[in-house]
């Protein structure tokens, strides 16, 4: 098991370095001059030369990358010209917000997705199954931004139960915070619950007909023990894998959701950085988000191996 984790960790580090490298050089592939982007087009040629040197643009690309990478590892993400503050500060305030909403919606997704999937498969062919299957099919066809807008329209504008947008720190006003994040969290979870439900149901049905489930029943254990002790553990691996992958979807979804609900998270920061050609925060966003996804995938692999002993051999 330790060997397995070390191997996956090593692979993760290699991927991390590749991500850093590409997110760095990609900035120099997009059109536009970084000096003009940073300091405006109205500077004199002397000033241009000065800033050019200041940004180390006269050095070779690999050397610049190396210096940037070293700073990066030290935790120095550079300076944001758009926000006029250090990128560290930006990330420190925004990453927790995105993670907070993302993880909440992911927990909601996993819980209800697995719950509904298990109910539908155990009650196969009964009315519970039909209701869940129909809802899941509807849910999986609705796009995230549409549910977000619909939620705002119904619950904020028509009914007035919840605020339409904005974000307050939970440490300042927990009640208001919960009201504000309720819609974005549910909107993000809604379509994913449908996918998890369908995957759980089909995996459960596959396992429920396996010979070893019949063996388990022949032992005289309760139906409850059969489902929780034998069927679910064997059916859950692909679901956990999918939840890991959903983490990426959640991060991508945050771009749309934060725009709709006006939440100052990583998604907003990325959009603003791109439109204002603010290179440093954009690079930092890409690397930080990729790293988080990388860590989540590593955790999924480890959970996978903990559940299924056959994985550990590979």
């Amino acid at each position: 098991m330790r060997k397995f984790i070390l191997k996956r960790l090593g692979q993760g580090i290699i991927v991390f370095m590749l991500i850093c490298f590409f997110s760095y050089i990609i900035m120099f592939l997009i059109p536009g001059d970084p000096v003009y982007a940073l300091y405006g087009a109205n500077i004199s040629p002397e000033q241009y030369q000065m800033y050019y040197k200041q940004l180390h643009l006269d050095q070779p690309l690999l050397l610049r990358f190396f210096n940037w990478f070293i700073n990066f590892l030290r935790g120095d993400f550079g300076w944001s010209s758009r926000y006029r503050c250090s990128v560290n500060e930006l990330i420190a305030t925004r990453l927790p917000i995105t993670m907070y909403i993302g993880i909440l919606s992911l927990i909601l997704t996993a819980f209800f997705g697995i719950l509904f999937g298990v109910i539908a498969s155990v009650k196969r062919g009964k009315w519970q199954d039909s209701v869940i299957t129909v809802l899941a099919n509807i849910g999986s066809t609705m796009p995230l931004f549409w549910i977000g807008v619909l939620g705002v329209y119904v619950f904020a504008i028509k009914l007035g139960w919840l605020p339409a947008s904005g974000y307050t720190s939970p440490f300042i006003d927990l009640g208001l915070n919960l009201k504000q994040i309720l819609l974005p969290v549910i909107a993000m979870a809604f379509c994913q619950v449908a996918n998890i439900t369908r995957l759980t149901r089909s995996n459960m049905l596959e396992v429920i007909n396996d010979d070893f489930v019949r063996t388990a029943r022949a032992k005289g254990i309760t139906e409850h023990e059969v489902i929780f002790g034998h069927v679910i553990p064997n059916a859950i691996s692909p679901v956990i894998n999918m939840i890991g992958m959903l983490f990426r979807v959640v991060v991508a979804g945050s771009v749309a959701i934060e725009k709709i609900f006006n939440i100052p998270g990583m998604g907003q920061l990325m959009i603003v950085s791109i439109t204002s050609k603010d290179v440093n925060p954009l690079q930092a966003c890409i690397v930080v988000i990729s790293t988080v996804v990388l860590i989540v995938n590593l955790l999924v692999d480890i959970i996978y191996a903990l559940i299924d002993p056959r994985i550990r051999l590979q």
Binding site: D211, F212, K219, G220, I221, G229, H230, P309, R310
Partner: peptide, 30 residues
């Protein structure tokens, strides 16, 4: 009664054991 009064040995041992439980646990469960 299942497992205690009457028990069954199934045809294919390859598929009649749970692949992710130790064999000791599976015997103990009965």
């Amino acid at each position: 009664l299942r497992g205690k009064t009457v028990s069954m040995i199934f045809q294919d041992p390859m598929t009649s054991l749970n692949p992710i439980k130790t064999v000791g646990d599976q015997i103990q469960e009965v």
